[in-house]
Design a protein around this nucleic acid. Structure first.
Lengths: 203, 203
DNA sequence: CGGAGGATTGAAGGCTATCAAAGTCCGTGG
DNA sequence: CCACGGACTTTGATAGCCTTCAATCCTCCG
């Protein structure tokens, strides 16, 4: 029923204000959901990783663009088909509900960050978030945060995620590096040298 | 199965970090969901109006306090009971899913506001939002935004909703009044005099 | 080597926060 | 009825964080 599709890094999957007729599942890669103002300011309102759900079932259009950050593979469904199928399969709807509730939780804690945190708190929170996202699931159920990882975001995208400018993001990274809290092996890579300090800075 | 409960204005229904064992439906009144930092900064992450759902079914705690803004009446359920009941009634789960998706949409557009809008854009957006929230559903399916309404928020709460300080909120209100865009019959009341201007200012 | 896009760095300015004080509204009690 | 107290709001002055504007620097590829 679903159709596989490859999306190259930078390529859009859904356009803002487009009456999106598709929903999708991420198989591989990372995608961003964004909204923009008329004058070009952009805010990333969600990030979809493998196994995450994309799109807006049931009715209204979602008013957000979806663009791949890395080369990605997704499984696309026509929304009508999906809606009908979901209504006939309560297990699927339940799964979808759990995921949506979890996403709402994440989104709400991000609101706290956007509305009340300073630039350095935002960066620290972001780095911890990434570190946990890319952490290894050890033998136990607990997951060890990654000490070193590659960001799927450019500096501009980090700025769009945190509600900052690219310059502020850059300056904060530089400062954390100078203070020995993180290392920056390359543009896209981050190494957490002092996790304790990050936790304190995250506020 | 549910239990009616009255909550006085200012009274909490759920505490942050409390392992909340309840979910609820709002019957009457308005409540806020908030998260706070250790040092006391607060962000309102959601507002629940009559017919809205409160709490976090299925698993994790929601990490948000719920406090009544006005005297309110809610219908409270033990979460375990609710979870079980929901799993046995797909229609209920579907309804809940639709509401959760809608709430996620609203939350995401609020992220845009928090991350990228200026104080005056935030205030204008907020006032339009309120005006529509308290609009009359005319004879048609279209709803007419309210020209005059009473805010369920204090100035401080407006600030916590928009990620501003109380002083900035107050100054923006004063300016809009001076510019003839709104009238302020009393502390809690707002009259929209020039909707067009608000739409422009909302960005 | 050279170009282009992204990233970093620097200087200046503006918007919003902070600190402080005065004003307003409202309920209570004399 | 009016004075008083307290919470909330408004207003003012100042400071600071982050943005803006601009230039330079990397780094990757053709």
């Amino acid at each position: 029923m679903g159709r596989r599709r490859n999306v190259a890094a930078g390529e859009p999957l859904i356009w803002e204000d487009d009456d999106s007729l598709v929903v999708a599942n991420v198989i591989e890669g990372v995608l961003k959901m964004t909204t923009s103002t008329e004058d070009g300011r952009e805010q990333i309102v969600g990030v979809a990783y493998p196994s995450d759900f994309i799109g807006r079932p049931f009715g209204q259009t979602s008013r957000a663009s979806v663009v791949a950050l890395t080369d990605a593979r997704v499984c696309v469904f026509a929304r009508n088909d999906f809606d009908r199928f979901a209504r006939e399969h309560p297990e699927l709807e339940h799964k979808l509900l759990e995921r949506t509730l979890a996403e709402l939780d994440r989104t709400r804690s991000w609101m706290m960050l956007l509305g009340r945190k300073t630039a350095s708190e935002k960066i620290a929170t972001f780095l911890l978030d990434m570190s946990e996202r890319f952490g290894e699931t050890g033998c136990a159920t607990t997951l060890t945060p990654a000490r070193r990882f590659a960001l799927p975001f450019s500096r501009q995208q980090v700025a769009d995620l945190l509600g900052l400018t690219i310059e502020t993001v850059s300056r904060q990274f530089t400062r954390l590096k100078a203070d020995g809290v993180i290392g920056l092996p390359s543009r896209r890579e981050v190494e957490v040298l002092d996790r304790r300090a990050l936790v304190v800075l995250a506020g």
